[in-house]
């Protein structure tokens, strides 16, 4: 059993470890160890193409995380008040958007966007001589589509665990409904919203499949990595991969710590 587990983990993580290891290689070829060096990191981050891709990725991830956090929280709060069939249907839709493979979201949003453009572009062209096309905003829209479900699930878990009498206590102490939301509900939900924000940022930042379909001419970091690999793996790509990996890991750990800390407080309370 233990040997199996070791083999499985080795199979999973050995390639990743190789990439991290060889990103510090002084030599010119990816798999030929010549000694420790940070040269490829400085090379990678002075490459204007990589920097441009990084900035694009950061903008997309940041906007996705922000929109997902806001819309996801609003969805969770709205669903609180819905009961019966409508609730079941919405619940199912939210789970589906998480479980559906990225490639399906990619293709379906691509088709949806193209259909939309075909419908409105003739009108826009004739009226103001403009047209809409694929760009950063289509990537953001596609990413928000499934990340808002992630935020929604996190916030809902917190909402159901929340003591209803806290809201009543606030109302009893003269706080208006808006005041109660601002002073009690929002602060109590904040850990989940923040964790959802960080997860969405990570998922969006490292996403390749969906982005590939709807990015148009834009190049994000994962897309850049993919296209340069076709010309052969260089230590430069290893360095970029390592940075993406470590920053994603860091964000995930922070999200996990935030969730666990808030849970501890909730448990200590009851």
């Amino acid at each position: 059993m233990r040997i199996y587990a070791t083999l499985v983990y080795l199979f999973l993580y050995f390639p990743i470890a190789l990439i991290v290891g060889f990103s510090f290689n002084a030599g010119k070829y990816a798999m030929d160890w010549q000694g420790f060096s940070l040269a490829w990191y400085s090379k990678a981050f002075s490459n204007p193409l990589i920097l441009q891709a990084l900035i694009t990725s950061l903008i997309i991830a940041g906007m996705t995380a922000l929109l997902s956090a806001i819309i996801g929280t609003m969805t969770a709060l709205g669903l609180e008040r819905v009961t019966g069939r409508t609730r079941t249907i919405f619940d199912a839709l939210i789970y589906i958007s998480i479980m559906v493979p990225g490639i399906v979201i990619g293709i379906s949003t691509l088709i949806a966007f193209v259909t939309l453009f075909n419908m409105v572009n003739p009108l826009l062209l004739s009226l103001w001589n403009i047209k809409i096309e694929m760009g950063i905003w289509t990537v953001i829209a596609a990413h928000v589509l499934f990340n808002l479900a992630v935020v929604c699930l996190l916030v809902r878990a917190r909402l159901t665990g929340m003591d209803r009498s806290l809201v009543e206590a606030s109302e009893d102490l003269y706080a208006t409904p808006m005041g109660t939301f601002r002073q009690v509900v929002l602060p109590l939900l904040m850990p989940s919203i923040l964790a959802g924000f960080l997860l969405s940022f990570t998922f969006s930042f490292e996403d390749f499949i969906i982005t590939f379909f709807v990015a148009g001419p834009n190049v994000t970091l994962p897309i850049y990595v993919f296209s340069s690999i076709r010309r052969g793996v260089t230590p430069e790509i290893n360095a970029v991969g390592t940075v993406v990996l470590l920053s994603s890991l860091l964000l995930l750990v922070i999200a996990q710590v935030i969730l666990q800390r808030s849970e501890k407080i909730a448990v200590a309370k009851s």
Binding site: D163, L166, E168, A169, L188
Partner: peptide, 20 residues
């Protein structure tokens, strides 16, 4: 008249103190 406009206050069964 909603709760927040009434001149009464309540002590809840499980106190309902704000944990944050």
């Amino acid at each position: 008249v909603p709760a927040f406009l009434r001149p009464v206050n309540m002590v809840f069964q499980h106190y309902a103190l704000f944990p944050h």
